[in-house]
Amino acid sequence: MNKETLLDIIEAKRTELLNVAFENGLTSPLAIEYSQELDRLLNLYDELHIQSLKKVQVK
């Protein structure tokens, strides 16, 4: 998965989280689930970003 695609997925998940939180509250089980999914996506993005930085430093 490339970074641009991942960023699109992150933005979509962020929008979903905001909608769910608005409808059900920030502490609703669904909002917590979406927040955890967003966290996983952001961690994956960080890993990809760190890997790309390491590749640039090696060159």
Results as ranks from 00 to 15, higher is better:
Leu17Ser: 06
Val58Ser: 12
Pro29Ala: 05
Ser28Lys: 06
Ser52Gln: 04
Phe22Gln: 15
Thr27Ile: 00
Gln57Asp: 03
His49Gly: 04
Ser52Ile: 00
Leu38Val: 05
Ile50His: 08
Glu23Gly: 05
Leu26Glu: 08
Glu16Phe: 11
Lys13Arg: 10
Thr5Tyr: 12
Pro29Cys: 08
Ala21Tyr: 06
Val20Gly: 07
Asn19Pro: 01
Glu16Ile: 13
Thr5Asn: 12
Asp39Val: 00
Leu6Val: 02
Glu33Arg: 12
Ala31Cys: 11
Asn19Val: 11
Ser35Gln: 08
Leu18Val: 11
Glu33Lys: 14
Asp46Pro: 00
Gln51Ile: 06
Glu33His: 15
Tyr34Gln: 15
Lys3Ile: 15
Leu6Ser: 05
Gln51His: 05
Gln57Asn: 02
Leu48Val: 02
Ala21Gln: 03
Glu11Tyr: 10
Val56Glu: 13
Leu48Glu: 08
Asn2Met: 05
Pro29Gln: 13
Glu23Met: 12
Thr27Asp: 05
Ile10Gly: 02
Asp39Lys: 04
Ser52Asp: 13
Lys3Tyr: 03
Glu37His: 01
Thr27Gln: 13
Lys54Val: 02
Asn19Gln: 10
Phe22Met: 14
Thr27Phe: 00
Lys13Cys: 09
Leu6Arg: 06
Leu6Asn: 10
Arg40Ala: 15
Tyr45Val: 06
Gly25Met: 15
Ala31Gln: 07
Leu17Glu: 07
Glu4Asn: 09
Glu16Gly: 13
Leu30Met: 07
Leu48Lys: 14
Lys55Asp: 01
Arg40Trp: 04
Gln57Leu: 07
Gln36Lys: 08
Leu30Phe: 02
Ser28Ile: 05
Leu53Cys: 02
Leu41Thr: 00
Glu23Ile: 14
Asp39Gly: 02
Asn43Arg: 13
Asn24Glu: 13
Leu26Asp: 05
Thr27Lys: 06
Ile32Val: 11
Leu18Gln: 15
Val58Trp: 06
Ile9Gln: 08
Leu30Glu: 13
Leu44Ser: 08
Ile50Tyr: 09
Ile10Arg: 04
Arg14Asn: 03
Pro29Phe: 05
Asn43Cys: 12
Gln57Ser: 00
Ile9Glu: 06
Lys59Gly: 04
Asn24Ser: 14
Glu4Thr: 15
Ala12Phe: 09
Asp8Ser: 09
Ser28Asn: 07
Ser52Thr: 03
